[in-house]
Design a protein around this nucleic acid. Structure first.
Lengths: 340, 340
DNA sequence: GGCTTGTGAGAAAGCGATTTCAAAGCGATG
DNA sequence: CATCGCTTTGAAATCGCTTTCTCACAAGCC
């Protein structure tokens, strides 16, 4: 009925293969998995039968029998965010090296969707890598209490029973603040990211700590896209800020465009700083001062942690990967024309 | 052993729930799936037990017993390509409406990886949506011969036994050519996309058909990223072209940046045209003349086709979605300063 | 040459759900 | 009051694969 066409049944099982090859199903399994020595002639017959019948083992049956799926699940809030592809590629690489495939799901920035999807992934993957989780601490704690291998990426929650790797967003923003303070800026505005984002709150925490550098900060609600940045940028003028920090590069670039339209010269009248160092060098107007983290390393590390969690069952301390400051053309001392 | 911590066993099965609730496993199943009427008191006891034990049905066992996974798989060549997220969101929406979840995989533009992943997806999903396949026709034919629900998106192969939806790339490029011809251009260059891309060959086919408009075309190898466009743009000068067409918007934007650096004024000295209409309005220097397709509709349509293929088993003719031309600031008549 | 080892293959027992089938409970009817 | 029919529940079969367990056979040893 299902998977059939013209009444021809197409569900080929391991027993069918065994029958065709004149051996038992167990032998077929052994040949295909190489779990035991099998007579070469038999093995050849099995392989022939497999080819002939177009046999593919049923993943559900394998999963059930083996007690594992050979799969890890990765959940990200938004696939349109250029931050993630690089992370995902690294994760895939590590997973493939360990003989597992990766399935990706997207929660669309919605904590309740995120929660459901994590549950799904836990039921159908050996391990779950949860990126930039927007869930509240309680839900997150409930999930980690399930004792299912789970690693957090870019979200650190103290006291939660799951390993975690994250870019050091706090440190990154501190680097930015230090740079701005050194240039002589005093009043800074921040275009804030998604509300539920821990990464955003870390940036804000750093901005507040930067009062020690003599910076005073105005936080403006914004978002994570270039459109948000473009729209929110109009509010910056009212703050009297000489420098603008942002949730990420896209926001910064959107703001940059708006500033140009408004006739505000960057960096002469306003310094603008991004975050993440997204690869848009060859697209943007201005090369952006920003901070970066090796996203590949981030993904690798998370995947390795997950792997060891699944096999050894060990979980260590949260790991912070340091960010690096890249000073480019979008920052300068306040009120000074950089080009002389 | 697995999934355990401190020796506490955590694998809760449906029988455990039944035992705790004082009913049989069958009853638990009936309560949870609502497949039959069950005494309200029993149902309540079952729900309590489920909550108490934190029971989650094992996906593999369900898949095996039900003969389906409740999942569709989507395979894309590159998650970093901003073309796909919008498609994926639409697919997810439709799938969710039909009670299925979506798992995404990435083939990294590698046809052999793509082949393996499709096979994996076929073994663990009810249906597969294959986007912008880079596989050759023979491998593709072999896969579709598997009689497993499969829909192609942005790849039409005549004579292949799988439904397909695609943007009308040929028509899109024809629109561009018509626009350029109308402006008075004669010599056009094209920055070509990935070799194995059918979408690219469709664009080229249109460029060749556009000889009828009096256009002569030089094809330059390039790729699909802004970096490629930036690099390949240097070769355009040698072709004597007055207009540059590209595989996609990112390439066009990269080229635009390079042209600015080279002192080539756009559109006065060179018209530049993108493809896809990626949402980077607020990031790029110049608003780009380009063609667009409703990517959401594309994803929806593909998902609906897959759904009906899985349920009804019917597959229709390939569907082409028309593209639309957006004339913006990056094109002008040759050798004329647009601003007067 | 008889008996212990060792080795390769089949039979059978799970894995954890769903679903068929059979039995039991219960009210209603003749 | 016994029987019929309907509903609700439990027992058991099933899904397709892996993995023990068991056995048959061949080789090696004294």
């Amino acid at each position: 009925m299902r998977n059939s066409r013209e009444g021809r049944q197409v569900r080929v099982t391991i027993s069918d293969v065994g029958e065709a090859a004149g051996v038992s199903a167990s032998t077929v399994s052994r040949v295909l998995n190489g779990t035991a020595k099998v007579d070469a002639a038999l093995a050849a017959r099995v392989h022939d039968a497999v080819r002939q019948l177009g046999y593919r083992p049923n993943a559900a049956a394998q999963g059930l029998a083996r007690g594992e799926w050979g799969t890890i699940g990765v959940l990200v809030p938004d696939l349109a965010n250029p931050y993630f592809p690089e992370v995902l590629k690294a994760v895939s690489g590590v997973a493939r090296a360990h003989g597992r495939r990766v399935m990706v799901m997207e929660s669309d920035e919605d904590p309740s969707v995120e929660h459901d999807l994590v549950e799904d992934l836990m039921r159908s993957c050996d391990g779950v890598l949860l990126c930039s989780s927007r869930m509240n601490r309680a839900d997150l704690a409930a999930l980690t209490a399930r004792h299912h291998p789970l690693v957090l990426l870019d979200r650190i929650v103290p006291g939660i029973a799951a390993p975690a790797v994250s870019a050091d967003f706090f440190g990154g923003m501190m680097l930015i603040c230090g740079h701005l303070a050194q240039l002589g800026h005093r009043r800074v505005a921040y275009l804030s990211g998604p509300e539920a984002s821990w990464a955003n709150s870390e940036r804000i925490r750093a901005l507040e700590a930067a009062k020690a550098f003599g910076l005073s900060v105005t936080i403006l609600p914004c978002g994570s896209t270039s459109r948000c940045g473009y729209e929110a940028a109009a509010d910056v003028a009212g703050t009297g800020a000489t420098a603008l920090t942002t949730y990420n590069d896209l926001v910064a670039l959107g703001a940059l465009t708006r500033m140009r339209e408004l006739g505000v010269r960057v960096p002469e009248e306003l310094s603008v700083v991004g975050f993440d160092d997204i690869e848009l060098d060859h697209v943007a107007h201005t090369s952006l001062t920003t901070v970066s983290v090796p996203r590949g390393r981030l993904g690798e590390q998370a995947a390795e942690m997950l792997e060891s969690l699944m096999t050894v069952g060990h979980d260590g301390e949260p790991v912070y990967l340091p960010m690096e400051l890249h000073v480019r053309d979008s920052t300068a001392p306040p009120g000074v024309d950089k080009r002389g």
